[in-house]
Design a protein around this nucleic acid. Structure first.
Lengths: 130, 130
DNA sequence: GCTTGACCTTCCTGTTGGTGGAAGGAATAG
DNA sequence: CTATTCCTTCCACCAACAGGAAGGTCAAGC
């Protein structure tokens, strides 16, 4: 099938699929007319990447997962390690965001939010300490 | 003071400070030798941006905040609105990360994590549904 | 006066993960 | 035969800087 159909099936933009080929992630066959030709396996791999990306794996991690995926002799421990590493990354990110939210909320709560020009948020941002 | 001293005082890399000038965010004076010269006010603005950035505001939002900051007639409501928008952005991001974490954790928990070649994580990624 | 080293300048490239668009060839429908 | 759609490549751009090369400047020490 052509790139358009593959895009449809994977919910990936054609541009992105071409990009994945450019960075040597998923290489389809080519027809005589130069068109990319995707088979079922290609589409599966694309979907695999699409899912992994949406779970927050970077392209390089996807490349890693793909090679583990096609390597029949790999240990599932390798994959589990990658997933757990990712989970702790996510945990850290969540914590950062929560502390950030707290700070911002404190500032916003102190702001009376009317048309008076003094604003604790800006004052908070402008303060020398913290 | 020169850029190095300003960098020291604001905990921003000199590279970043130059970049902020390039994008017309904070424009210092220049000495006869072409060196950038930062006064107290410049340093305050840089610190302001540094703090806003660390709270997750984008450069464009910082530009907005800066203009509100120097506009004596602005209503604090404008600023509060920006802050609250940011908070809801953060909330959404946190939710996404949490759902992502759940999915990933489920997959990882099903993985026995030894050297057997079957791996629920990869299988989960390769599945056609969800 | 000279050298050394730290600091400054601009310019160019690369990062991550794509997106947008132009120019032109190929397939298909009427 | 033409119109439209799909495909191709290539080039540029986004955030928000970081790294490094090549060269100018300044202050200290001898």
């Amino acid at each position: 099938m052509n790139i358009g159909a593959a895009a449809e099936l994977t919910s990936l933009p054609a541009k992105t699929i071409r990009y994945y080929e450019e960075i040597d992630l998923i290489n389809p066959a080519r027809g005589d007319n130069g068109y990319r030709h995707y088979n079922e396996q290609d589409v599966n791999l694309l979907r695999f990447v699409q899912r992994a990306r949406s779970l927050g794996f970077s392209i390089e991690q996807c490349r890693n997962l793909l090679s583990l995926y096609s390597d029949k002799d790999r240990a599932s421990a390798d994959v589990k390690k990658l997933a757990e590493h990712k989970i702790s990354e996510i945990d850290q990110k969540i914590e950062e965001l929560q502390s950030l939210r707290t700070t911002l909320k404190n500032l916003a709560d102190q702001c009376h939010g009317d048309h008076r020009p003094d604003c604790p948020i800006l004052d908070g941002l402008a303060e020398n300490n913290s």
